[in-house]
């Protein structure tokens, strides 16, 4: 059903439209002069000024893997992040930890852990779903590369970005 929209009846003064134009120009010129006179700050001048110091605590940058204070790689390759990842950016190949390893009791670790940063949408679901507190979104935001291959972060690169994170729940303690 078509809906008939009632048009307001305009007065003669309004029908001239000139006052409306003047009103509109007051708005636009108001913004113009505020910006030109510097009363209002527009935005960060990105390449000269960097975000680094200004990023909020909860900023979601590049996802990365972390090791803990015991120098253990926290990821156990449960593949939950691979499962939850909306753009399917994560690919994990799990492997068994050899029995002579210091952390053999953890049994499982990633053999390969790839995040395709062209696909990544920085949603943070991987961090949220991780049962081992192994993947975090760090503050790295300028992820660039000159080829598609370069934009796939492998395990080494992910640990390089992630670094060591202390104060996490230590599930695999000596009682385990």
């Amino acid at each position: 059903m078509a809906i008939v929209v009632k048009r307001p009846k305009l007065k003669l003064w309004e029908q001239l439209y000139l006052p409306a134009i003047a009103k509109g120009m007051r708005v636009t010129l108001g913004h113009f002069f505020k910006i030109v006179s510097g009363k209002k700050k527009v935005t960060m001048q990105y390449p000269e000024e960097k975000w680094d110091e200004h990023l909020p605590e909860h900023y979601r940058g590049a996802p990365a893997l972390v090791t803990d204070e015991q120098d253990r790689e926290r990821c156990v390759a449960c593949q939950l992040c691979e499962f939850i990842c909306p753009p399917r950016a994560i690919t994990i190949k799990p492997e068994e930890i050899p029995s002579d390893d210091q952390w053999a009791k953890v049994e499982k670790r990633p053999k390969a852990f790839d995040i395709d940063m062209i696909r990544c949408i920085y949603c943070g679901l991987c961090e949220e779903v991780c049962p081992e507190q192994a993947i975090f979104l760090r503050k790295d935001y300028a992820i660039t590369g000159t080829s598609r291959e370069e934009m796939v972060h492998d395990k080494e690169k992910l640990y390089e970005i992630g670094g060591v994170r202390v104060g996490l729940v230590n599930k695999w303690n000596e009682l385990k």
């Binding site: 156990v76 449960c78 939950l80 499982k108 049962p131 081992e132």
Partner: peptide, 11 residues
């Protein structure tokens, strides 16, 4: 029962 579902194949 251990809470190692992340590494357990049965999960």
């Amino acid at each position: 029962h251990p809470l190692d579902c992340p590494i357990c194949d049965q999960a």
